[in-house]
Design a binder for these strands. Sequence first.
DNA 1: TTGTATGCGTTATCAT
DNA 2: ATGATAACGCATACAA
Lengths: 334, 334
Amino acid sequence: MANIHDVARAAGVSIATVSRHLAGQRIRSTAAVDRAIAELDFRPNTSARGLRLGRHNTVAAIVPDISNPYFAQIVRGLEETIAPAGLRVVVASSNEDADTEVQLLNRLSDAVDAFVLVPAIESDATKLALERIALPTVLVDRVLHEESAFDVVVVDNAAGAELAARHLAGLGHTLLAIISGPQTSLPGRIRHEQFVAAAAEANVEIPERFRKIGQFTQDFGYEATRELLAEPERPTAIFVGNNLMAHGALKALNEAHIAVPAELSMLSFDDFALAELLNPPHSVISRPAGLEGQIAGERILHRLAQPDAPAVKRILPVSLTLRASTAPPPRTAP
Amino acid sequence: MANIHDVARAAGVSIATVSRHLAGQRIRSTAAVDRAIAELDFRPNTSARGLRLGRHNTVAAIVPDISNPYFAQIVRGLEETIAPAGLRVVVASSNEDADTEVQLLNRLSDAVDAFVLVPAIESDATKLALERIALPTVLVDRVLHEESAFDVVVVDNAAGAELAARHLAGLGHTLLAIISGPQTSLPGRIRHEQFVAAAAEANVEIPERFRKIGQFTQDFGYEATRELLAEPERPTAIFVGNNLMAHGALKALNEAHIAVPAELSMLSFDDFALAELLNPPHSVISRPAGLEGQIAGERILHRLAQPDAPAVKRILPVSLTLRASTAPPPRTAP
DNA sequence: TTGTATGCGTTATCAT
DNA sequence: ATGATAACGCATACAA
């Protein structure tokens, strides 16, 4: 690849002049330099510029699972808002693993200007790595510690879980089950706790055997649902903590030929593409994934311009999208 | 951040010794250097190393749409196979736009060692950019030109489309419709052409008004299906060219209260998460997305080790996953 | 085995 | 407005 010396030689000027032109300063020989740049197909070397400047015009987005469309939408929202500012985003996946996450953070730390991180779990190692690295960072969807020194963009998980519990209890269900993600992650924990609490407030106690806690995966959703269905006394409604687990739950319900919502109601967190096309259409707590990414992008932009602005926490609203997967419980016990 | 000089000073050696230790050479003062590295939390600067070495231990994956789970799976497969070799992958999305794609290629070209590219369309600009850049590149899922100088990993689109056409024709359908992606992309074109050709071979001619060509998006799938349903004489079976368009088609069918497969059969390319949970379960041509990524990774590894190995083209098999969205056509015309 | 010195390509400082 | 040059952090050729 041609370098700045080649361009300078071709244009008959010094490298300083070329560099100034690149930086937008007025120079005498604009035409000649432009021609040389075009002819030689010169593009400034990223590594050299990064080394010299310490800036890279890049933000890294680290998500727990790149194949979860929900995270993909966050990334798209981020991309949309920072691209106009000349920043590119590179995405990397921690695969829900804290060690991988820390490695990624470390390896990328001197190649990017900021991080948008969806943490795998609330890991102290991650928190420490981030503090050492000391780049502008916004935590999205999950956090690292209840009170955080980082910018945070989350949704109102508590409100969502309460909405779900009240809806189900309001329908008359007294045998509620819940399938939750890791309690070491904010959405996993808050959704679980608040659903249980809101149910209790509506006078329905959720027995231990109806509380399933595991991973945010389709597999866990499937297994947990099967266990629930194997109970001598089945729940009449299930609340599921995210989209992937809901896929698994749906599969288990389908295999067991459970009539939804006639025999059993189901409600889950996170909307998904085909929810309205299922039979019956699936009710969900939906949240604005793209918007989460956009706001994260705005925070990054703001913090890049103003490095020691105080940390900000944004809580985005969720809503209950009622379709047809919930109904009052069946009249008679099996 | 601490640099190599700091470490050298702390350990009482020269920077060369530290550098050698980093490179795995034996040095006398291993313990002291290791301690200094740990205490100072030293990590070699990526930009400096990249500038000096011209290598970055990074491969860039550029996909048309990061929120399409199909591409996410390709990325995961890639990640799996190259991570053990110490390579990281950064993902970027071209949003199905050739200009964005070229920009991404250029901007990343001096920060990565190789590209895994799923091209947006068959763009000469992209082809030229890639040739100029001259990094190891493997094209996945789509190509840039029929005969390529790049490594290529694709699936057998022709076989898939023929499978689909023969299945539908074999059921007795004579009014077939097809919804296809851009003819400027390999999967869009091959699936379209081969489906039409295989149908013709089975003596069913697909009229012009039953051939819808557009984008690989849910929106286009939806619109095209609505147009099809608005025809005075409707098709009795529809073949849809990818997962996103299938989502749209499903939505249109659902809204119009079309009974599938009683009134109309549907078959589409690409399996998707909830296909088996729809009513009826949806039949698809499925392809090994993760495997595509893995093989791409192997090619990258191979080519990094052996830069001028001849270009290789891998064609992966597809299969017909029959569920319940197809059936013989209804007896009587509407 | 170790240290010194050079260069990778760029930006910025300092003269001019 | 322009040019020569130092410096960013690292790896290595060369000398010891």
